[in-house]
Amino acid sequence: MPARNDIPATLKRSPRKAQETYVKAHDAAVERYGEGDRAHRTAFAAVKHSFERIGDRWRAKESKGPSDAKAAGGRNTRARTAGGVDANASKEHLMEVAKELNIHGRWRMTKNDLVGAIKQANAGRTRRARGK
């Protein structure tokens, strides 16, 4: 089944390029691994190389590459995902994203704290978007 028929809601609210990246990667993963969680994880990994999650949608990153230790380490790494937050971005960039998401206390946060706060804010915005 082509992924375009049931694309995740966060991608529906995102640029066409992010949607196309997900669909192509998902369909290729289905051919290789079969339908299921692995195909969806593979497709999201492809999206995270070019896009970062901000709020309830995905936006193009300034430079392509792995967004966190999990993406850099691959399937067998014990590292955890940052949920679409570009944890490899500079602290200044993360501060701008935190400001955009209206995260309070951001000026006192470390880079890891910012990643966690952005991840939490993204989840909250997605929950609210689903409720509409």
Results as ranks from 00 to 15, higher is better:
76 N>V: 08
72 A>Q: 15
107 W>Y: 13
47 V>R: 04
60 A>Q: 12
98 A>T: 01
72 A>W: 05
15 P>A: 11
25 A>S: 15
124 G>I: 00
65 G>R: 12
12 K>L: 14
65 G>M: 12
107 W>M: 13
97 V>H: 00
66 P>E: 02
24 K>A: 15
115 V>W: 02
67 S>P: 09
51 F>Q: 12
88 N>G: 07
61 K>S: 07
107 W>E: 15
30 V>C: 02
69 A>P: 10
95 M>N: 04
69 A>M: 13
75 R>H: 10
128 R>A: 15
8 P>C: 08
17 K>E: 15
114 L>A: 04
58 W>T: 11
6 D>Y: 06
4 R>W: 10
27 D>C: 05
132 K>F: 07
16 R>T: 09
8 P>L: 08
94 L>H: 01
105 G>C: 09
27 D>F: 08
48 K>I: 00
98 A>R: 01
29 A>V: 13
56 D>Q: 06
41 R>I: 06
90 S>P: 00
129 A>S: 14
75 R>M: 12
97 V>Y: 00
117 A>G: 06
83 G>V: 09
113 D>F: 00
132 K>P: 06
84 G>V: 02
80 R>A: 14
127 R>G: 11
86 D>Q: 03
106 R>K: 13
72 A>N: 13
39 A>S: 10
14 S>G: 03
55 G>S: 08
92 E>W: 00
13 R>A: 15
117 A>N: 09
33 Y>F: 14
94 L>A: 02
55 G>T: 04
95 M>Y: 00
64 K>R: 11
54 I>M: 03
48 K>Q: 11
125 R>N: 11
127 R>T: 11
53 R>G: 05
122 N>P: 03
40 H>L: 03
123 A>T: 09
45 A>W: 02
31 E>D: 15
79 A>S: 15
104 H>M: 08
48 K>M: 05
118 I>Q: 10
126 T>L: 15
92 E>N: 02
99 K>C: 06
5 N>D: 13
20 E>K: 08
88 N>M: 12
5 N>G: 06
31 E>K: 01
108 R>E: 11
119 K>Q: 12
10 T>G: 03
122 N>M: 05
36 G>Y: 01
8 P>G: 10
20 E>F: 07
41 R>D: 01
7 I>V: 12
79 A>V: 11
91 K>D: 09
55 G>I: 05
104 H>S: 12
10 T>H: 03
40 H>Y: 02
90 S>T: 13
102 N>G: 01
72 A>S: 13
25 A>Y: 12
88 N>F: 14
17 K>F: 01
28 A>Y: 12
44 F>A: 06
105 G>L: 10
108 R>P: 00
102 N>T: 04
50 S>R: 11
103 I>A: 08
29 A>L: 14
14 S>L: 07
101 L>E: 07
1 M>N: 13
42 T>K: 02
